[in-house]
């Protein structure tokens, strides 16, 4: 059976997001006849060049249009529908971008969606987590319909940058809705620290930090080991850090080589976001904290003494 896959590129208007390279890896496991990537942007030149370099990509389709300056699902979805009929699968990342967009695409095509693919059995059989990752289901989709799916980034490595795909321009001819407009993006992504979603090391703080000022301890340790900073929902709700740092069922799902959880109890909703990490370290003053059940290294200690001591030990 032929399969031809279309991947919706995620980007910030300038650069390709690493989630796209992970979708490509997932797509390769389907052993398709072709993998195309579509970049919908105001000016996609640079992003398309990055996408074309991903190993496994056959063709990059550039859809340049001023309305594509911001990633609004309501305007992107009808453009994707225009391209859809050539494909057996359309994949997007299971990031807030893909989660927002892909179900709208599916509904417009009159088909269902598979969310958060974490493993590929064959072109129509996949594994995905449910119940905050406490249960894994293997799901089969019908092969006589286009399959719309989102890909769990933490489950796939990024495809290498050794490819050389052709790049084509495409102009879309559909009426786009005007009922939705972008106003603002409040982001501190200007920071020089590694990005939480791609970092190999992450230091996360919980409610135990007690204040925004105290949370500086987490940043200090992260800087010493060259890691990104994450947080529990309680830390975000308490205003210690922004929502973009939340790890968990409703935040980011990550799998760094090293995850250090400080003053985090280990609620299942948090664990689902980090339990696939290579090595997990937990420091908590409660020896019964559930986080210790999944930690490779646990230390029962007050974090206000443990973190400064750890920083001192590592700086030696």
């Amino acid at each position: 059976m032929m399969s031809n896959i279309l991947i919706i590129a995620e980007h910030n208007g300038k650069e390709l997001n690493s989630s796209t390279a992970k979708c490509v890896t997932c797509a390769k496991k389907i052993h398709p006849d072709s993998i195309d990537v579509v970049v919908l942007a105001a000016d996609s030149h640079q992003i398309a060049t990055e996408a074309a370099a991903l190993e496994g990509v056959s063709k990059v389709i550039r859809v340049d249009h001023p309305v594509n300056e911001y990633p609004l699902a309501a305007t992107l979805a009808p453009q994707i529908i225009e391209l859809a009929n050539k494909y057996t699968h359309i994949l997007g990342p299971s990031t807030t971008f893909g989660r927002d967009l892909m179900p709208r695409v599916a509904a417009l095509l009159g088909v269902g969606q598979l969310s958060d693919i974490m493993g590929v059995e064959n072109a129509y059989r996949f594994k995905r987590p449910i119940y905050a990752g406490n249960v894994i289901v293997t799901v089969e989709a019908p092969s006589d319909r286009i399959l719309i799916a989102t890909i769990r980034s933490a489950s796939f490595a990024a495809s290498e940058q050794t490819g050389n795909a052709i790049i084509e321009k495409y102009s879309i001819n559909v009426d786009l809705p005007k009922h939705t407009s972008f106003l603002d993006l409040r982001s501190d992504s200007g920071s020089s620290r590694p990005d939480l979603q791609t970092a190999t090391k992450v230091v996360s703080g919980g409610r135990a930090l007690g204040s925004k000022d105290n949370f500086d301890l987490i940043y200090e340790l992260a800087d010493v080991i060259g890691g990104a900073v994450g947080a529990s929902r309680a830390a975000v709700d308490s205003g210690y850090v922004g929502n973009d740092l939340q790890v968990g069922q409703t935040g980011k799902i990550i799998a760094p080589d090293l995850y250090i959880a400080l003053g985090i109890s280990g609620a299942i909703q948090h664990l689902t976001g980090m339990k696939d990490s290579g090595t997990i370290v937990a420091i908590n003053k409660d020896e019964d904290a559930p986080i210790f059940e999944i930690a490779d290294f646990g230390l029962v200690e007050d974090l206000f003494t443990a973190i400064p001591d750890l920083i001192a030990a590592l700086e030696k």
Partner: peptide, 12 residues
């Protein structure tokens, strides 16, 4: 709440 931070949109 988006991965990059907070996005503000207006809808009819």
């Amino acid at each position: 709440e988006v991965d990059a931070g907070l996005e503000v949109i207006k809808v009819k």
